[in-house]
Design a binder for these strands. Structure first.
Length: 291
DNA sequence: AAGAACATCAACCGCTTGTAC
DNA sequence: CGTACAAGCGGTTGATGTTCT
């Protein structure tokens, strides 16, 4: 049994909105506020689908929208966020006040993609184009480099390079697990979860601190354990916990070494739940893993 | 000046997620 | 626990504007 349509399409307008429709929508939301989009069109006297009303409001009519060209700073922020989050436009938009996911998505497709290509970077992976097809599986060292994420991005096979860097699915968060990190932007692209969002959220004081640290550094720094690495196949051992490339929990507890520095230049401001810091590398251990 | 090609972006569509029952 | 529904998200489309030939 299929689901019911979101609206009666036979009685709804489609296409560009008229000024009158805009005004009706604005007036209604000013009076009643947002919410219950399904019933809004009828209540507002609009022959539109609720979805359409929502989109129109969010992407065009909202009073807090910042219209106009993107600044260079916004460009760079979008690029950084995309390298971290992938095509999670709503998450990216959430970090850019006054911009909508649709706007950023369009801007990405029309401007930034080309910008990155002109820099010789693959817009999807943020890796140099000439290495995008390189299948080198060289494993990064277990060092504490803060550029480990960049290294990871520069390697073509996340599974081979960072098998034990887990992209924890949303269930992890509910048990208070610290999000460790994603394999790469590619993982973020392919993952339907909100791992990176969770990662952002797990910086409890981050937003507050951002105001204190205008120099936004979104590099995700990852390093590998010095011990043997689990294979990607181990993902199947705990599918309920990790979406991909997961290792058995005890092994992770012992071997995962990740420093996630998101938004701060100084590791002292990192909010990771760390149990040990060795040469600047945060060794994360959470109750979940220890379980 | 006209039409083709390209660029832009608002809007749509289908799928996923969250939640109430 | 399963189902249905509302809302949200991301990919895609198509109308319109701009530039090129």
């Amino acid at each position: 049994m299929g689901r019911s349509p979101c609206c009666e399409k036979a009685h709804t307008n489609k296409g560009a909105w008229t000024k009158e429709e805009d005004q009706r929508l604005i007036n209604y939301i000013r009076t009643h506020g947002e919410g219950c989009w399904r019933s809004l069109p009828k209540a507002a006297g609009l022959l539109r689908c609720g979805k359409s009303c929502r989109l129109r409001w969010i992407n065009y009519l909202r009073p807090d929208l910042k219209r106009g060209n993107f600044t260079e700073e916004e460009d760079e922020l979008i690029i950084k966020l995309h390298s971290l989050l992938g095509n999670k436009w709503s998450l990216i938009a959430g970090r850019l006040p006054g911009r909508t996911d649709n706007e950023i998505k369009n801007y990405w497709n029309t401007h930034i993609k080309r910008k990155l290509l002109s820099r010789g970077l693959d817009p999807q992976t943020h890796r140099p184009l000439n290495s995008a097809t390189n299948s080198s599986t060289t494993t990064p060292s277990t060092t504490n480099t803060t550029n480990a994420y960049s290294d990871a991005l520069n390697s073509s096979s996340p599974a081979a390079v960072l098998p034990e860097i887990v992209a924890i699915n949303k269930t992890a968060d509910k048990k208070g697990t610290t999000i460790i990190g994603a394999n790469s932007a590619e993982e973020a692209h392919s993952s339907s979860g909100t791992t990176e969002e969770e990662l952002l959220k797990h910086q409890p004081q981050q937003q507050q601190q951002e105001q204190n640290y205008p120099e936004l550094n979104l590099e995700l720094s990852i390093s590998l354990p010095s011990q043997s690495t689990p294979t990607a196949n181990t993902a199947e051992s705990k599918p309920q916990q990790f979406s991909i490339f997961a290792a058995p929990a005890p092994m992770i507890a012992q071997t995962i070494c990740v420093c996630c520095r998101l938004g701060f230049q100084s590791s002292q401001n990192c909010n990771c739940q760390t149990t040990m810091i060795t040469n600047g590398v945060h060794i994360l251990q959470t109750s979940r893993f220890i379980d």
